[in-house]
Simulated scan of single mutants.
Amino acid sequence: MNYENILISVDNNIAIITINRPSKLNALNVATINELHKAFKTLNKNNEVQVIILTGSGEKAFVAGADISEFAHFSVKEGAQLAAEGQEKLFDFIENLKTPVIAAVNGFALGGGLELAMACHFRIASDNAKMGLPEVSLGVIPGYGGTQRLPQLVGKGRAMEMIMTAGMITADDAHRSGLVNHLVPQAELLEFCNGIAQKIKKNSPYAISKAIKSVNSNFKEGKNGFKTEIKAFGDCFGTEDFKEGTTAFLEKRKAVFTGK
């Protein structure tokens, strides 16, 4: 499939999605959100893809925010619909993907850009990255899950300060607060992400998908994370991956998983 706003490459079971709007600092517009949804949906169905890395083109920005010109004139109803559709189509969709998604934050990650990074399963940032949720300076609040995911990652008080001041934090601050897992020089960012992806893909794709579901369930209203974990744990026992993993361990060899 041809895309106008993103680039996709797949090599050795690892896919890289690059948001490619450098003249707009990779800002999210409706077209880009739609393309990202299609790309993630397609890659998630591809059994050859075991890890997805998401990044932005250029050296300045991961995603510098949403395209404000698209919604500056919206009504109350249109604004709510924008948030609902965006969350369902992209942000919640990524969070619940069975394929692990790593955000390679290579510069500014502001507003919808930070929300996009937070929807990924974890984040690795370049040392020049800056992150923030500036929405209240525009008279609105984060609408793509920012008020929910940021407190989960950095704690309520720190999240409240970031949201209410509308300020940016440095990559060092993001690392110290747990918003990003690792901090590396920009030139080494994708290589570092690829190294982690290589470790992930050695493990059972089926088990990883169940682990993602179990961790996420702890943060979902009405869900009991422990019950989800128990069921997912039991489900693993009926898979080829479990048989291969335990047999390989007992035979003292490396397991070869199929995701089945």
Rank of each mutant, 00 (worst) to 15 (best):
N2S: 12
N5L: 10
I6L: 14
I6G: 01
L7R: 15
I8K: 04
S9E: 13
D11Q: 12
N13D: 15
A15V: 09
I19C: 06
I19V: 15
N20K: 07
L25H: 00
A27I: 11
V30N: 07
V30P: 03
T32D: 00
I33H: 05
H37V: 03
H37Y: 08
N46Y: 09
N47A: 14
Q50F: 04
I53L: 06
T55A: 00
G56D: 10
K60I: 15
F62A: 02
V63W: 05
V63N: 03
I68N: 01
F71E: 02
A80F: 13
E85F: 04
L90C: 00
I94P: 05
I94T: 04
E95W: 10
I102S: 01
I102C: 02
G111P: 04
L114I: 05
C120W: 07
R123Q: 13
E135Q: 12
V136Q: 07
V136G: 00
G139R: 02
V140R: 12
P142S: 06
Y144R: 06
G146E: 07
T147E: 14
T147D: 10
R149C: 01
G155T: 02
R158K: 15
E161Y: 11
M164V: 00
A166S: 13
A166E: 00
M168I: 10
M168F: 02
A171Q: 02
D172N: 13
L183I: 12
Q186W: 09
A187N: 13
E188K: 14
L189Q: 01
L189H: 01
E191V: 15
F192C: 06
A197D: 06
I200G: 07
K202L: 15
S204C: 15
S204I: 11
P205C: 07
Y206R: 13
Y206A: 03
S209N: 06
K210Q: 15
K210G: 01
S214H: 02
G225Q: 06
K231R: 14
A232E: 12
F233D: 08
G234P: 00
F237Y: 12
F237L: 14
G238A: 09
T246N: 03
T247S: 14
E251P: 03
A255N: 07
